[in-house]
């Protein structure tokens, strides 16, 4: 029953190693929020708009936080972000960009498109643990969540 009440975390990530390491780090930090993973940009859009297999919101609940990689197949992270910020019912959804690159152009573009935060994936696993701990504390406990109503404007 507990995992029903906890808000969902959506990870948009195509690298299976990174997904595994993320899961492991999340388990180690005892972050109890349910994790959903999609592996490309189009899947992210489908999940967020509740289309196709993601229509069942009981199985695939709307996330309270999106962790978004930028380099993705089919649709880049920036495209997903741009799309999201144009959806009247979803545009308030907090998005944390989490990527390998800290190219200043990427950072600037991500903020321009409405990213709420920008993180660089650490190479050392210990640093990843630290980061996920901080992430959970900040976004799920300290941060006041906005009202999200996906039915607005379809």
């Amino acid at each position: 029953m507990m995992n029903i009440t906890l808000p969902t975390l959506l990870l948009v990530e195509d690298d299976p190693n990174d997904i595994m390491l993320f899961r492991r780090a999340k388990d180690k930090t005892n972050l109890a929020n349910p994790l959903q993973v999609v592996e490309d940009g189009e899947a992210a859009v489908a999940y967020l708009s509740g289309q196709g297999q993601y229509a069942d919101r009981n199985r695939y609940p709307l996330p309270a936080l999106v962790l978004l990689d930028l380099k993705l197949p089919r649709k880049s992270g920036l495209e997903v972000l741009a799309w999201l910020r144009e959806q009247p019912g979803l545009r308030r959804l907090p998005v944390v960009v989490m990527t390998s690159s800290k190219e200043s152009t990427d950072v600037g573009l991500a903020y321009d498109l409405g990213a709420n935060s920008y993180l660089v994936k650490p190479v050392a696993f210990d640093n990843l643990l630290e980061m996920i701990k901080a992430l959970g504390l900040y976004w799920f406990i300290l941060n006041e969540k906005p009202d999200i109503n996906p039915s607005i404007g379809g």
Partner: peptide, 21 residues
């Protein structure tokens, strides 16, 4: 160099992460 920044570090994360695991 974008690729270097982005793609070369992904395997590094895997090497370090899984060795630590």
């Amino acid at each position: 160099s974008y690729s270097v920044s982005h793609d070369l570090r992904a395997p590094l994360r895997a090497i370090q992460g899984f060795t630590q695991a």
